[in-house]
Write a protein that binds this DNA or RNA. Sequence first.
DNA 1: TATGATT
Length: 484
Amino acid sequence: MARLTESEARRQQQQLLQPRPSPVGSSGPEPPGGQPDGMKDLDAIKLFVGQIPRNLDEKDLKPLFEQFGRIYELTVLKDPYTGMHKGCAFLTYCARDSAIKAQTALHEQKTLPGMARPIQVKPADSESRGGDRKLFVGMLNKQQSEEDVLRLFQPFGVIDECTVLRGPDGSSKGCAFVKFSSHTEAQAAIHALHGSQTMPGASSSLVVKFADTDKERTLRRMQQMVGQLGILTPSLTLPFSPYSAYAQALMQQQTTVLSTSGSYLSPGVAFSPCHIQQIGAVSLNGLPATPIAPASGLHSPPLLGTTAVPGLVAPITNGFAGVVPFPGGHPALETVYANGLVPYPAQSPTVAETLHPAFSGVQQYTAMYPTAAITPIAHSVPQPPPLLQQQQREGPEGCNLFIYHLPQEFGDTELTQMFLPFGNIISSKVFMDRATNQSKCFGFVSFDNPASAQAAIQAMNGFQIGMKRLKVQLKRPKDPGHPY
DNA sequence: TATGATT
């Protein structure tokens, strides 16, 4: 029954080798146990306790856990910024034995009042070292259970833990955590399974990657918070907001994460704005700017041609009213706007033809500029710090647009640029095929108010680009299943 | 080609 799995046993051995945190004060009453005050066994196990009602604090929880032995430390996890109860706790008993008893008696065995799922009592993640071995699995079919996931991953090694993430009603969120007994096994599973298949009903191929570290999770949270404030330019807005401490922490975190986890960047960002910016940076650094051939598989050369020389576009677009400068912006689009073609494209079916003259103008302009002339521009228009990673957020109802028939080479940046004139954009996202990193030619733009969304629909629905016309409409409401 | 990307 309470037999430890092989890897749990291994983990608990590793435990012995780890440095101990300095002991903190003992916790309250002293049940019998024969331990010196405030001391714990050298091989004590720190337990993670999950599924705790948020209205229970340490003193409420203590009686429940004390029946298995004297508690060395019990801490409810709180959000460091809001102080909010996170619904889980760390628990260390003075005796290792107590931890094992508690885990056996409580884990998945008892559900605390108000909780949908049974309490979780298991060694904390911090107790296991030896590299990442926990995977996040996304794009599962919502019908797939733990068993199904297990079956999928079993061929790659010993699985310690397998949890399908579920909503409050118990329905799957279409993702899971799978913990292998070793990093190598986990890696093998990623290699074999990531993108390997598309589950029936899933919108994209299977995602298998290492689960976020604590640091990344914190970063994500902070990004969400910052994003919710509607902030795209932190340097301007944040110092005056009550969240500036948050923003600073965010930027520190981001620096750390970016510098330490390059492996998390997806490989082959074929024609994302990121890639385009890199090309731009190269040309601005004084290397020949002109004949950079578009990557393979790209259609519609006009748009891409200009992206190779972003620095050169600045003098043109800056001279026109109504163009909002945007870092890494799309020169071709800026040119379109500069020529006044935007306002009611739906009534101008030949816009596509006008794109070409506008574009070739830029090319000629480019050709006349020797490399040396570029350098001052690079100085006067410094490459701004990379924009905060934008969350894929929805705006209020009536503010979210679904856009279809986007050109293949359109990325988030281009989409943003295109809709920028109509209002304050909360988020914009072009959907990419996970496997190929190619645009699926549709995306979302969310404004902060419905009027902007309507204006954008009026102006952009039917906008002809190349052979296609944009379809711009309100995003379908998420949940049509109203009970009444 | 068709409606938001999880912890």
